[in-house]
């Protein structure tokens, strides 16, 4: 198996400052980038999912809201809908739930990361970007435990550095990268 095909999915968690960070990340991915990207951005419960339009306008990955029972496909990025948790089942399809908030958030990054870690195991990359809380730390730790790769945005390049800092403290991350370099790193896998 070539290293490029080792990874079957990438999960990304972002909070405060996430819109700009996600734009930078997706804009710099190759047009033919093949690994599906699954995103939790903390967002107001009653917001229209404007994030999808903005990220789609970059014309890189096709960006859509994650539907329940959907199987992530190469060439797509999926965004968790506002006010729903996004989980990955053992058969690698999506589940949406309206359970209690986790880390004050719904969708919660930990919920996506922990379930994806078990579904994709060593074939998963987890990325923590800018944010003002510690959501995602436990999830990133779980990804490492299951043999996946952990990447954290260099806190010095984050609009808000608490979330990347918490993630770096929670586990032995594989790569701490400036925001601008994350996409290049993924392109070269």
């Amino acid at each position: 198996m070539t290293p490029a095909r080792k990874y079957k999915a990438i999960v990304v968690g972002s909070s405060a400052g996430g819109l700009n960070a996600l734009k930078t990340l997706l804009r710099n991915l190759d047009r033919e980038f093949k690994i599906p990207v699954i995103i939790v951005q903390h967002i107001s419960p009653d917001s229209e999912n404007y994030l999808i339009h903005i990220l789609n306008d970059l014309k890189r990955l096709k960006v859509k809201e994650a539907d329940e029972k959907e199987h992530p496909q190469p060439g797509y990025a999926y965004v968790a809908p506002p006010n729903y948790h996004l989980l990955v089942e053992p058969d690698q399809t999506f589940t949406l739930t309206v359970d209690e908030r986790v880390n004050y958030a719904r969708p919660s990054i930990d919920v996506l990361f922990e379930t994806a870690a078990e579904a994709f195991r060593e074939h998963l990359i987890g990325i923590i970007l800018t944010g003002a809380n510690n959501d995602g730390s436990l999830g990133l730790k779980r990804i490492k435990e299951m043999g996946g790769m952990a990447i954290v945005q260099d806190p010095d390049t984050a609009e808000v550095d608490s979330m990347p800092k918490a993630a770096i403290q929670a586990c032995a991350v594989d790569h701490v990268l400036p925001l601008e370099e994350i996409a290049a790193f993924l392109n070269n896998l």
Binding site: L87, V88, E89, P90, T95, T97, D99, V111, E114, T115, E118, A119
Partner: peptide, 9 residues
Amino acid sequence: YSQAHIKRR
């Protein structure tokens, strides 16, 4: 039921 959900609960 969703397995991932049941497991979390």
